[in-house]
Amino acid sequence: MNTLTYANIFTIGIAMLKAIIILIATVAGAGLLSWIERRVLGWWQDRYGPNRVGPFGIFQFGADMIKLFFKEDWTPPFADVFIFWLAPVIGMSALLFTMAVVPITPEWGITDSQVGLLFFLAMAGVAVYAVLFAGWASNSKYALLGGLRSAAQTLSYEVFMGIALMGVVMLANSFSLYTIIEAQKDGWFIVPQFLGFCAFVVAGVAVAHRSPFDLPEAEQELAAGFHTEYAGIKWAMFFVGEYVGVILVSALTVILFFGGWQEPALLGYKLWPDFLPVYPFIWFALKTSIFIMLFILIRAALPRPRYDQIMDAGWKFFLPLSLANLLITAAVILLQQPVAGGA
C-alpha cells in the first residue's frame, strides 16, 4: 500500500483540481449552450435571438442566471416537499457525474474507469428518477402525465441503448472509454458499427429529453410537463441538466464512434497525414460541437411524434435493429478469429 507521501498528495490534488475544472467547464458550457442554442435557432429561423447583453449577446446566460437565482423560489403548498427538492438535484447531478469517466484528451479526464460505459448507463438510469420524482412530487396532473411519459419512454429507450453499445464493447474488448478510443486508432467505429450508431444517437436524444423526444415536457400538450410547478433556481437545475445531457451524449457519440480525441481514420486508413501537428483537445471539441449542433438542428427541423408512436418506434424498430447489430458484430468477430480446436 502507498502511504500519503507528498508526491501522492500532490497527485491527488492535481486530480481533484482537474475534476473541479472539468465539472465547472461542463456546467459553464451548459449555460453557454442555452445562449448558443437560442442564437443558432434564431439564425435558422430568420430572426435574431438574444443579442443585447454584451457582444453578440454572449452574456445573456449570465443575465439569465442572475434572474433565475434571484427569482422567488416557490414550492407549491400541495407538493411533497423533500422529493420536490430532490428531483432537480438528481436532474442536474446524475449526468454531470458521468463526466467523471469521459476522456477529453489522453491527459485530461477525471478517471479511467474499467466500467466507464456501464457507469454512464447506470447514471442515465438514475437521471430518470429526476423526472419521475418531479412529476410525482409536484402533485399536479400535467406534471404527473409528464412523469408517466418519461418513465415509459426512458425504459423503452434505455433497453436498446445498452444493447446498441455492446457492439462497440465487443470490438474494443473493454468497457473503458480510454481503451475504446485507443481501439479506434486505425479506424473509427462509425463504419463497422453504423447500426449501433443510429440506435445510440436516437436513444441519446431520448435520454436527454430533447426534441423530438421531449414528450415529458411537450409544451403544446402538457404545458411544461414534469417541471410545470418548478420556478427559479430549481427549474434552472433541470434546464442545466438538459444541456449537460446534450454535451454528454454528444461527447459519448464522439468517443464511441468517432475516435474521441484522435484525428480522422477510417477502415485502417489514416486521413490525417503524420507530418501535420495533432491537437487532441481541438479534435474532441470540434467533433463534440458538431453533434451538439445536430441536436439543435433536429429541434429546429422536426415535429414531435405521438407518445405511442415513440413507443412503437423504440420496441418494434430500434430494439430489433440493435439486436441485429449485436448478432452481426458477434458473428463477424467470431469469423475473423482463428479457429480454435479445429472443425
Binding site: 435557432l41 435558422w44 429561423q45 426534441s211 423530438p212 421531449d214 411537450a218 403544446q220 429541434r299 429546429a300 427541423a301 422536426l302 415535429p303 414531435r304 411524434p305
Partner: peptide
Amino acid sequence: VQDVGGMS
C-alpha cells in the same frame, strides 16, 4: 405545425 411540435 407548432402544435404538432415543429417549432420553425
